[in-house]
Amino acid sequence: MPNTDRITTVDRTEILKRFLVTLVCLIFFEVTSFMIQLSVLFQYGYLLIAKKRSEPLRNFTNNLSQYGYRIMRYATLNENLRPFPFNQFPGDSECEPPVKQVQFK
């Protein structure tokens, strides 16, 4: 099995800077995760009461989940683009669109 580890030529201070940015991003990830959990509870409560879903909330949580995905890719060293607040928040064009019809089977 070939060795796929790559030795980096980056200075240790650059590694430390990325690590500190990653720590900040992971704090944002925890806040994002909590916001998604609250949104899920609200969405189901709204669905039970109004018998329809909140489209603005669905779009917002779709963007939040894309943001969480970007944070995890950055934190796990699979992406170099820094996530929000160091870059722009993911927009609708960067996210998969929500499904048209939600099924409860």
Results as ranks from 00 to 15, higher is better:
residue 47 L to G: 06
residue 18 R to N: 07
residue 7 I to E: 06
residue 14 E to P: 11
residue 8 T to Q: 06
residue 25 C to A: 10
residue 24 V to Q: 01
residue 105 K to R: 13
residue 1 M to Q: 13
residue 36 I to L: 01
residue 82 R to W: 01
residue 99 V to I: 12
residue 78 N to T: 11
residue 55 E to R: 06
residue 71 I to E: 10
residue 97 P to L: 08
residue 86 F to Q: 12
residue 43 Q to M: 14
residue 50 A to M: 11
residue 88 Q to G: 04
residue 99 V to L: 09
residue 62 N to E: 06
residue 40 V to S: 03
residue 38 L to A: 12
residue 101 Q to V: 04
residue 100 K to S: 08
residue 10 V to R: 09
residue 15 I to W: 11
residue 37 Q to L: 01
residue 50 A to T: 09
residue 61 T to L: 00
residue 98 P to C: 06
residue 54 S to A: 04
residue 30 E to Q: 02
residue 93 S to A: 07
residue 65 S to P: 03
residue 13 T to P: 05
residue 1 M to D: 04
residue 7 I to R: 04
residue 98 P to D: 05
residue 62 N to C: 04
residue 29 F to I: 05
residue 30 E to F: 02
residue 9 T to F: 02
residue 29 F to W: 05
residue 90 P to G: 09
residue 63 N to A: 13
residue 67 Y to G: 02
residue 4 T to D: 15
residue 93 S to P: 05
residue 75 A to E: 03
residue 63 N to H: 10
residue 21 V to A: 05
residue 67 Y to F: 07
residue 28 F to P: 03
residue 39 S to V: 09
residue 92 D to P: 14
residue 5 D to G: 04
residue 71 I to F: 03
residue 6 R to C: 00
residue 104 F to S: 02
residue 76 T to Y: 01
residue 37 Q to Y: 03
residue 68 G to F: 01
residue 60 F to W: 09
residue 74 Y to I: 12
residue 66 Q to E: 09
residue 48 L to F: 13
residue 100 K to R: 15
residue 101 Q to R: 09
residue 104 F to P: 01
residue 26 L to Q: 00
residue 4 T to G: 02
residue 72 M to S: 00
residue 67 Y to P: 00
residue 87 N to D: 14
residue 11 D to G: 05
residue 91 G to S: 15
residue 20 L to F: 15
residue 31 V to F: 05
residue 66 Q to K: 02
residue 38 L to K: 13
residue 39 S to G: 15
residue 76 T to P: 14
residue 46 Y to W: 12
residue 32 T to M: 08
residue 78 N to Q: 15
residue 8 T to N: 07
residue 66 Q to H: 11
residue 86 F to M: 12
residue 43 Q to F: 06
residue 64 L to F: 00
residue 40 V to D: 02
residue 103 Q to P: 11
residue 15 I to N: 11
residue 92 D to L: 08
residue 92 D to H: 12
residue 55 E to V: 03
residue 4 T to L: 14
residue 20 L to S: 11
